[in-house]
Amino acid sequence: MPILLTRQKDDVLAKSQPCDFSDPSLNQIVEQQTTIEEMKKRCDRYKQLLASLQPPQDNTMIRAANFTTDSVLQMIQQSPSSSFIRVYYGIEESGEHVLFMAPVTEAGTLAAEEETIYVDDCCRCPPLSNCPADGLLEEQP
């Protein structure tokens, strides 16, 4: 059965403070058994939200993005003191929607060294042709 690594949510702090940037070791990550169906429901709820907007945004807003393993590893290696990776949603001057990653320090602030590496997604869905046969994004019959 698939495993989801997730932040422990059974204490009050986890519900009110998503991350403890003062001491990253306090962010208790636990393993939970999951199913592809449970993960797909997350994606389906987002798709339903996009479809409900006026005008519908399901062909504009990103539903998934791909990052190369090499580029993510390069970012991590360049900022080894960063305990977090933050994913940002942005819009290019051309109007194209993008996701990109940035290293975040223990203080919860963006790593801002001169040599900081940021990572753009290499392709995104939609168009769904960028994510063929993705079980989380498939249309239900």
Results as ranks from 00 to 15, higher is better:
A65K: 06
A65P: 00
A65I: 08
N66T: 11
N66E: 15
N66Q: 14
F67L: 09
F67Q: 02
F67N: 04
F67D: 04
T68E: 05
T68F: 01
T68W: 01
T69Q: 11
T69Y: 15
T69F: 14
T69A: 13
T69N: 10
D70L: 15
D70H: 15
S71W: 04
S71P: 00
S71F: 05
S71R: 04
V72I: 08
V72S: 10
V72H: 00
V72N: 06
V72G: 08
V72M: 01
V72E: 01
L73C: 11
L73S: 12
L73W: 08
Q74K: 14
Q74N: 15
Q74T: 12
Q74E: 15
Q74M: 08
Q74G: 12
M75F: 06
M75N: 03
M75Q: 03
I76M: 13
I76Y: 00
I76S: 12
Q77W: 03
Q77A: 07
Q77T: 04
Q77Y: 09
Q77N: 04
Q77C: 00
Q78E: 10
Q78M: 10
Q78H: 05
Q78V: 03
Q78F: 02
Q78I: 02
Q78G: 00
S79Q: 11
S79R: 08
S79E: 15
S79I: 07
S79N: 11
S79H: 13
P80L: 07
P80H: 04
S81I: 05
S81H: 10
S81E: 15
S81K: 13
S81N: 14
S81L: 11
S82K: 01
S82F: 03
S83K: 15
S83R: 14
S83H: 14
F84V: 08
F84L: 14
F84K: 12
F84T: 13
I85F: 06
I85A: 06
I85M: 05
I85N: 04
R86G: 13
R86S: 11
Y88A: 03
Y88D: 11
Y88C: 06
Y88Q: 05
Y88E: 10
Y88N: 11
Y89A: 08
Y89K: 10
Y89E: 01
G90V: 08
G90F: 11
G90H: 01
I91W: 02
I91V: 09
I91L: 02
I91R: 14
E92N: 12
E92C: 06
E92S: 07
E92W: 04
E92G: 07
E92K: 15
E92R: 14
E93W: 04
E93K: 15
E93N: 13
E93H: 12
S94K: 10
S94E: 05
G95H: 07
G95R: 07
G95S: 04
E96Q: 13
E96A: 09
E96L: 05
E96N: 05
H97A: 05
H97W: 02
H97F: 07
H97Q: 10
V98M: 01
V98C: 09
V98P: 02
V98K: 14
V98R: 13
V98F: 01
L99K: 00
L99I: 01
F100L: 03
F100S: 08
F100Y: 14
F100N: 09
F100I: 01
F100P: 11
F100V: 02
M101L: 05
A102S: 07
A102L: 10
A102M: 09
A102Q: 11
A102V: 01
A102G: 06
A102K: 13
P103Y: 14
P103W: 13
P103K: 10
